[in-house]
Simulated scan of single mutants.
Amino acid sequence: MKTKMLMNNEKILAGITLKDPNEPEHNNMALHACKNPASILTNRKKLADFLQCELAQFVCAHQTHSANFHKVTLGDRGKGALQKETAIANTDALYTYEPNILLSVFTADCVPVLFFDETSGLTGVIHSGWPGTVKELTLKLFNHLIQVEQCNPMHIQVHIGPAISQRKFEVDEDVYRQFKNLGYADEFIDYNSKTRKYHIDNQQTVKRQCMIAGIPEDNIFIDPTCTFQNPNGFSYRENKQCGRHLSFIMRKSN
């Protein structure tokens, strides 16, 4: 099972699956973007076995590039794990305080964000494609966690996973304007006068949103792997029929 593990200690399990030509559909993990759902379930079962957990512990969302987030409870265990129809609807971020629940997010160029707070037991995942970034999903979720859930931003650790790089994320003026209007993304935008295209660093913009919420920069890690350029990456921009990575995080019970 080709997987990049970010953490695997006595408290936290976190990582991202990688593209693998030796697995069905190249290790695609997404039921919403596949040729054969049975192959996806085979891949997910292999992942569960690799992580030494059960598919019934997975929780998946029906991602819609929204600014919506959902607090996962024990009653949500298994949602979206075996059928896309049971996934948590219209949601692009999940968080929980429950142990032994594997929160999942699917990406292929979009920015996956994993976060945790060992003090409170908080874990969470965010799917931030450019629409989610300009809707400030990450900022809104962390503001909610800090202001409503009373989380201490100093204790929150954030991992921003592999995504399309600024070099390969080429957009027209309509998308540029939406990033420009954020008011804090200018330094992450380049203009190519030859192609008349803009190049935007979505990962750095998401990182800035974390920092605006109050999370210390030292608590934020970025994986610079470009999903478009790296052979281990699924890239929707490169191939509209591509599969999806699954980024995951779970707090283990003591």
Rank of each mutant, 00 (worst) to 15 (best):
G214A: 13
I249G: 04
M7I: 07
K19C: 13
E238D: 12
A33S: 14
Q229I: 11
G124F: 02
F169L: 15
H65F: 11
F69N: 03
D76Y: 02
V111Y: 02
G129T: 12
S165P: 08
L51Y: 04
E170S: 04
N239W: 08
C242T: 09
Q52W: 11
L182G: 06
L6S: 10
D109W: 14
A163M: 03
Q57S: 15
Q157M: 14
V59P: 08
H155V: 13
N254G: 13
N152L: 15
T96S: 02
T96D: 01
V206A: 12
N143E: 05
E54I: 02
L47Q: 06
L246P: 15
L18R: 12
T227V: 04
D109E: 03
T96P: 02
M1L: 09
L31N: 01
Q150S: 10
L122P: 05
G80K: 00
D117R: 06
I16Q: 07
L74K: 13
H159C: 11
H144T: 09
T96N: 00
Q209L: 10
I156K: 01
M250C: 12
N192T: 15
T73F: 03
E149D: 08
P224D: 14
P37G: 04
E149N: 06
P153C: 06
G78I: 08
P37K: 11
P99R: 02
V134C: 04
W130L: 06
K71P: 15
K35R: 13
E173I: 15
A185D: 04
L18E: 05
L145R: 11
M1W: 14
